[in-house]
Write a protein that binds this DNA or RNA. Sequence first.
DNA 1: ATGAAAGCGCTAACAC
DNA 2: GTGTTAGCGCTTTCAT
Lengths: 349, 349
Amino acid sequence: MTQELTPGAPTLEQVAAAAGVSRSTVSRVVNNSPHVTDEAMTAVLDAIERLGYVPNRAARSLASRKTQVIALVVPETTAKVFADPFFASVVQGVALHLSDTEYTLNMVIASETNPQKTRRYLLGGNVDGALVVSHHSGDHSYARLSHALPTVFGGRPMSPDEQDSYYVDSDNVAGAEAATRHLLDIGCRSLATIAGPQDMPPGFDRLVGWRSVVRSAGLDDGLVELGDFTPRAGAEAARRLLDRGVPFDGLFVANDQMAVGALSVLREQGLSVPHDVSIVGFDGDSFSETSNPPLTSIAQQATELGATMARVLVDLLQGRPADRVTIMPTRLIVRGSTREPQGTETAAD
Amino acid sequence: MTQELTPGAPTLEQVAAAAGVSRSTVSRVVNNSPHVTDEAMTAVLDAIERLGYVPNRAARSLASRKTQVIALVVPETTAKVFADPFFASVVQGVALHLSDTEYTLNMVIASETNPQKTRRYLLGGNVDGALVVSHHSGDHSYARLSHALPTVFGGRPMSPDEQDSYYVDSDNVAGAEAATRHLLDIGCRSLATIAGPQDMPPGFDRLVGWRSVVRSAGLDDGLVELGDFTPRAGAEAARRLLDRGVPFDGLFVANDQMAVGALSVLREQGLSVPHDVSIVGFDGDSFSETSNPPLTSIAQQATELGATMARVLVDLLQGRPADRVTIMPTRLIVRGSTREPQGTETAAD
DNA sequence: ATGAAAGCGCTAACAC
DNA sequence: GTGTTAGCGCTTTCAT
């Protein structure tokens, strides 16, 4: 009954006093322990409400040896391309999902010049788990992390020896196949592609998908140029493709940003899209929506991917079973950069 | 020299033992207290290095009554437009700046259906301060927050009674004026604008800037249509502008996303950009870079704005003097959507 | 089912 | 300059 003026936040002890129970009981109620009588529970809940009690995270964390914090690790180079809509959506998905849990989101920019700093921070007991998103890269330099800290990656690992980590990825191969099949379906007879860096899983997988369909169709799979996923790289790759002198009427580009760059080069060279060349991009982001013409694209469920990463990690942290690998489906969105199916021609051969 | 197998993280006490000093001394070293002899300091630093000691945040926070956590509050509706490159850059700036400080970034999605939840969290002693970014809106529903928690806003408040809060904003009026002057400079004689919502400071201020220059030039300032900053709204506004039947040769659009939408409508109606109509956007983001033609735009220093918000808050938290208001300059980036100056014509009048 | 007591790892007076 | 001593607010055995 200590009559105190408490300017700061009320403590568990004060709630206990107000409810006429011990601190232990209050703690039990706060932590949903089943071993509390309804009366005690009601009294405590009431006191909590009246006093506006909010548990002190630091104290709780110190005593329980859990932080209730999840780190979202963003490699610095990724941070520079933070404006990548796909990436932003993933972060959004993570944040939204976590806001429904007891976990707090701690965004960490991983300094590339001083990776130890990040490692120490993550391993220093500051967080309960980590989410690593490395944009388009397959950067699993934090792979070893997962042996010491529950970790879920966005995107599959590049090297097979990291296959034991948890990750969530889009079905890049299937997406690329769908894109390529669409080009075939609308009557394209000579296909080219602008692929991503081959040391990054999305770059690699999307090329695999394109190639697989092109070969199955008995077509030449040599019209390949690479780019680093930026609009500029897309433009340059398109120029190189054109310079080869081999005509093509269907182009699959590994992401929308490069597709936009390629689009402008094609037009600049007097080629009409989709009349002369049909283009399919990948991501289904704002770049594809606002380009002229709007891009037909393979949409990734970016927000859902982020939310799934968060869910998997939370499951892991709470001892629930979780899938090591989750593959998210993609879907084809047909817009103006691919022409209408040329039924007769296709039927003719 | 206590030979212990410590599976968990080493504690300050262990460092003290290893260095042959008291815990206080270790604490002083860790907290950069000047009252430590060089020898003691060296011994401690050495022990810390050897043991790989990392201070426990929870314990530190509990004892010091500081969390070293800064919340980045993102209203839910903003989260939906998370892919806005401007917004993403601001977040990036915040994160980058904070990674150089002792503060940790806690991203909070403010539920709009349950604002109390966020309030309680922020006021519950979980964070030392808050950064509120509400995208293009002037949403200072958290204004009252600043009386109880150090808070810095991104963007100026809409209502004058909130003028006592700390905020960082771009110079929207000056930016809009520069954009409009540029249109005049290249010889435009009839100006129109697609403005943003007038209940949002950026929407309001940019219209003010446009109007001020148009009037000074003795031109009609009636060609105004509003949009909500999305590409679609830009397209619709452009259509309404055209429907008025009043010809214009210069168009200022309050942001790049709307400008891209307007651009496509203009072309669709057979108007050539920049030959028939010159367009200037605002933001200088990826939308302006990858559109066709690329947009002349007023670039905001989004990353710097975010970094500045973080810096101001940290100053505030550390008792250093900080400016209540910081206005960031903008700059004109001339690209393909505005035509070359028509020197003779301009000189003629 | 509930309470008492012992810390979790650190900081912050206060002595020396 | 350095060590000693109390806690910070909570969880968690262990009794009862």
